[in-house]
């Protein structure tokens, strides 16, 4: 169930993400499929194994480190590499969590973010979507139910590809519904706009007729007065 906003005057503004609009509703959001994180998790496991090797084999290596400065510096270099490797692995996993696609009732937002280096937003207006194409080719893609969504815009031939979308069928249906609802809403607003435009046009005509009638009345009255003067 959708929670009610705490402050009704704020609406949905900044409710789920910075930049959310007053009337904007978050329909769903997702991250890339876990297949993209597997290499980083494997890297992390490899790091764990290397450190375990260090712990187990340190007593054998320590005499070399005590005797030779060169080996001591090699040891420092290995520690630096392992430390960098540790941070890199975790930063990539954090990057997976921060890299999100959001579907709202008016926009599609691609938020690419990492802990330190990247922070970029890309937005697509739902009304401007012409076609949505789903591709899920290959054994693993069908087995693990992930794929790509290619969105073509009506304003240009440009297209936006959302890759490694998890549960791609669901998100394809969700985006199609969002697109249809947005199109209906847009057409409704446009027709309302047309009605109000016609109404204002009619009003202008009515005003003009009234003015004309008033002028005719004035002229008749004036003519009557002139006749009265002549009669007198």
């Amino acid at each position: 169930m959708i929670e009610q906003p705490k402050n009704p005057t704020q609406g949905n503004r900044d409710k789920y993400f910075k930049g959310q609009q007053f009337n904007e509703e978050l329909i769903c959001f997702f991250r890339k499929h876990w297949v993209t994180v597997l290499p980083h998790i494997a890297m992390g496991l490899l790091l764990g194994i290397i450190e375990l090797g260090f712990i187990l084999g340190f007593t054998k290596v320590s005499p070399f480190l005590k005797e030779s400065t060169f080996f001591a510096l090699v040891y420092v270099a290995v520690v630096i590499l392992l430390t960098v490797y540790l941070h890199k692995t975790f930063f990539r996993i954090f990057g997976h969590f921060m890299d999100t696609y959001m579907f709202t009732n008016s926009r599609i937002i691609d938020h690419k973010k990492t802990v330190i280096l990247h922070n970029s937003h890309e937005m697509l207006d739902v009304v401007k979507i012409q076609d949505i194409q789903k591709s899920q080719d290959g054994f693993w893609r069908n087995l693990l139910r992930y794929g790509d969504l290619v969105i073509t815009l009506s304003s240009s031939k440009a297209s936006k590809s959302l890759s490694y979308v998890p549960n791609v069928n669901f998100h394809y249906r969700c985006l199609s519904r969002t697109k249809r609802d947005a199109a209906l809403r847009y057409n409704h607003l446009r027709s309302q706009n047309t009605v109000s435009k016609k109404f204002s046009e009619n009003r202008a005509i009515r005003d003009a007729i009234k003015t004309e009638e008033f002028l005719i009345d004035q002229a008749i009255e004036f003519e009557g007065r002139v006749h009265a003067v002549f009669d007198a």
Partner: peptide, 10 residues
């Protein structure tokens, strides 16, 4: 800044 509604799907 991003209190997104997390679920098991995300």
């Amino acid at each position: 800044k991003h209190p997104l509604p997390e679920s098991k799907y995300t």
